[in-house]
């Protein structure tokens, strides 16, 4: 990470121009992303593409569509886990599932699903609670490669011990090994889990609500957004949720920057699960 000759001001101008150029050319909107981490990832991209400045990178992005595809892997962060933060999933089981049971059919939105781990964790939890057959999980993201991997549902077997432990701590009623088969260092998830998941392209920055849902789970996505874009995303969730619907976010995220913050009450404070309430 040497040789960042750009002093702050030039760097900011170039970064703003780059995200504008991307928005107008490819309709991916990174203008409202938190700058410090974006700048860090772009620095890694400069290195990868052998560009000295963001302006050079911008020129390549504008003229070579393939470069944008590759750059997207730097602009978005594909890091996920099954049953990440077991306490969150335990709280879903204990505090949310009893209410979900009262609906004849369920729609759930996993926003920013990355390579699918969170969506499959949700599917396994619902199967264990006897709800999967009446559920439809919309799992959305903006990264097409991540969505392809999510569709495939094949993960590194080396991660399985950690996932197994997470699952157990999440209150799992069965063994995680019931849901995958291992082969050649891979864990291949049971295809029947996928019958109730729809993976699709959707941006919290530019798209609108597509369905009414009883639960939104959007974890570790808001941290990449500035306050204004967080507020936009939270508006979408507020609009998508049915009366008394639930919203779960990442453990160090908050609803503070939402204009609808007071339309939610805490259901599980530490685990960041909220319920939409009626406001006169």
């Amino acid at each position: 990470m040497k040789g960042e000759g750009d002093d702050g001001a030039v760097g900011d101008i170039e970064l703003n121009l780059l995200v504008e150029a991307i928005y107008h050319t490819y309709h991916y909107d990174f203008r409202g992303y938190a700058r410090a981490s974006l700048r860090r990832r772009l620095k890694a991209a400069l290195h990868h593409f052998g560009c000295a400045t963001l302006s050079q990178l911008q020129s390549r992005v504008l003229h070579e569509a393939a470069v944008f595809g590759e750059l997207l892997e730097y602009l978005t962060v594909q890091v996920s886990e099954m049953f990440r933060d077991p306490g969150y999933f335990l709280a879903l089981r204990e505090k949310v599932v009893p209410l979900l049971r009262t609906y004849p059919s369920l729609k759930i939105w996993v926003a920013g699903c990355s390579t699918g781990e969170e969506a499959y964790s949700m599917a396994i939890l619902l199967r264990e609670e006897g709800l999967l057959e009446r559920s439809l999980i919309y799992a959305t993201d903006i990264n097409p490669n991540a969505l392809r991997k999510a569709e495939a549902g094949i993960y590194d077997a080396a991660k399985v011990p950690e996932y197994t432990e997470n699952h157990r701590r999440s209150g799992g009623r069965s063994s995680l090994s019931d849901y995958y088969s291992a082969a050649y260092g891979r864990a291949i998830l049971d295809k029947s889990l996928r019958r109730n998941i729809v993976f699709s392209d959707h941006s919290l920055a530019t798209d609108s609500v597509f369905a009414e849902v009883q639960l939104v789970s959007c974890r570790n996505v808001l941290i990449y957004f500035d306050r204004a874009l967080q507020s936009r995303a939270l508006d979408l969730f507020h609009e998508a949720l049915c009366r008394k619907g639930f919203l779960g976010i990442g453990l160090r995220e908050s609803l503070r920057f939402s204009s609808h913050a007071d339309a939610f009450v805490e259901v599980a404070r530490e685990d960041r699960i909220y319920q939409k309430v009626d406001r006169a």
Binding site: R41, V77, R252
Partner: peptide
């Protein structure tokens, strides 16, 4: 801002 930001990057 200054403000604090978190990330889940590698």
């Amino acid at each position: 801002g200054p403000q604090l930001a978190l990330s889940m990057d590698e």
